[in-house]
Simulated scan of single mutants.
Amino acid sequence: MDTLTPLPVRPVGPLRRAAAARVALWLDRRRAPESDGPTAGPVLDLAGAADAVQDLLPPAPENRPSGQLTAHGTRVVGPVHGPVGYRRLMRRLLSEASSASPAARPTAIEYRVPAVDALVDARLDQVGGWEAKAMRSRAGIAGAHLLYDMHRRELASPEWTEAVAHGAAAPRLLWSTQPGAGPDRGADLARRLLLPGTAVALSPRALESFARHGVVTGPTVPDLAEAHRIVGVLDWFGLRLDDLDSPAG
């Protein structure tokens, strides 16, 4: 009889490789634990992942005007779903940065990938047809890659360069895999969003799936050509990412 007790699975390659790619992994506990059944195999020792998980989003009420604070004091604002909401929020943050003391809290702008997919997919379903169906679940990643490129250019602007030179903390982008993505989908989104200088928020189960099965060879290279192609096809259907943050969106 086998009397050996399986040891807890320790966080290995994917978590540390994500950190090496200059991507901060955050544990997202804002929502109830996933209830889609246990993950096969021994439970991941999340305590052992402390060196790879850099922050925690604790349970908190939604839609707080001032933003939610992480365990380490970063203010999370948003969410934004596209360029319009992002630009609006960056203007507000720049105004705050211009008058803030150097000790002002660091800020993360949240972009919820599954929420963007859900908004666009619902409109694609209204369009109907196999062409529209083929574009489902593509807008979120495409929008994230375009937003990343926009964010890099925005932080390189004279206004933000001056604000940072005077002690303001440049905001970072936070890719959220909740709500709407199960553990495996969340892990896959994380793998495709290892964009340097950003953070990825994963539920406990998604973090476990990423640690077990994630294949990370280095940082994600923004695929702007593919992102623009997807946006162009969506535009042909009459769907614009700019509209997702409009009052009617």
Rank of each mutant, 00 (worst) to 15 (best):
P33C: 12
L69M: 10
M135A: 06
G73V: 12
E162A: 15
L119C: 01
T39N: 10
G67L: 05
A163Q: 04
S157P: 03
A52P: 01
E131K: 14
R112M: 03
A71S: 14
P158S: 01
M90T: 14
E154I: 13
T70M: 04
W160V: 01
P114M: 00
S157L: 01
T39Q: 15
V80K: 04
L89R: 13
A142Q: 00
V53G: 00
L94M: 07
D117C: 02
T107F: 03
L124F: 04
W160M: 02
T161F: 04
D149S: 14
R138I: 03
E62W: 09
A50D: 11
L93P: 00
V76E: 01
A104V: 05
R136Y: 06
S157Q: 03
R87M: 09
E96C: 06
R29W: 13
P38N: 10
A47Y: 09
V80R: 00
E34F: 08
R64T: 14
V127C: 09
L93D: 01
V43D: 10
D51E: 10
A50Q: 09
R75Y: 05
R92Y: 07
L124N: 02
P38Q: 13
H151D: 02
A144V: 02
A71R: 15
D36Y: 11
S66Q: 15
V77G: 04
E110Q: 14
L89T: 14
Q126V: 12
L57P: 01
T107L: 05
R112V: 06
D45R: 09
G41T: 04
T161N: 09
E159R: 12
P42A: 12
D125G: 12
H151C: 00
G41E: 07
P106F: 03
P102H: 07
E131A: 15
A104K: 00
T161V: 04
R153T: 10
S98W: 10
L46C: 07
P114Q: 05
A103I: 06
D55M: 08
A139T: 02
P61W: 01
V80F: 03
G82D: 07
S99E: 12
A50W: 09
Q68Y: 08
S137D: 15
A60Q: 15
R29H: 13
P33F: 11
G85F: 03
G67D: 05
H151Q: 06
A60G: 08
A60H: 08
R91C: 09
D28T: 10
A49T: 07
E154P: 02
Q126P: 04
P106H: 04
G128K: 09
E159L: 11
A156F: 00
I141A: 12
Q126A: 15
D117W: 06
A104Q: 10
A103L: 09
S98Q: 14
V43I: 12
G78V: 04
S157R: 06
E34W: 09
D55W: 05
P79L: 11
R138A: 07
A32Y: 05
T107M: 03
A139R: 02
A50T: 08
L56N: 06
R75S: 08
R138D: 01
A104R: 11
A134T: 11
P106T: 00
T107W: 03
A50Y: 08
G128W: 10
G140F: 05
D36G: 14
A115V: 13
V53L: 06
T70P: 05
A115E: 11
L147R: 04
L89E: 09
D121A: 05
A139C: 05
V84Y: 11
A103V: 10
V84N: 15
L119G: 01
G82M: 08
A71T: 12
L69Y: 11
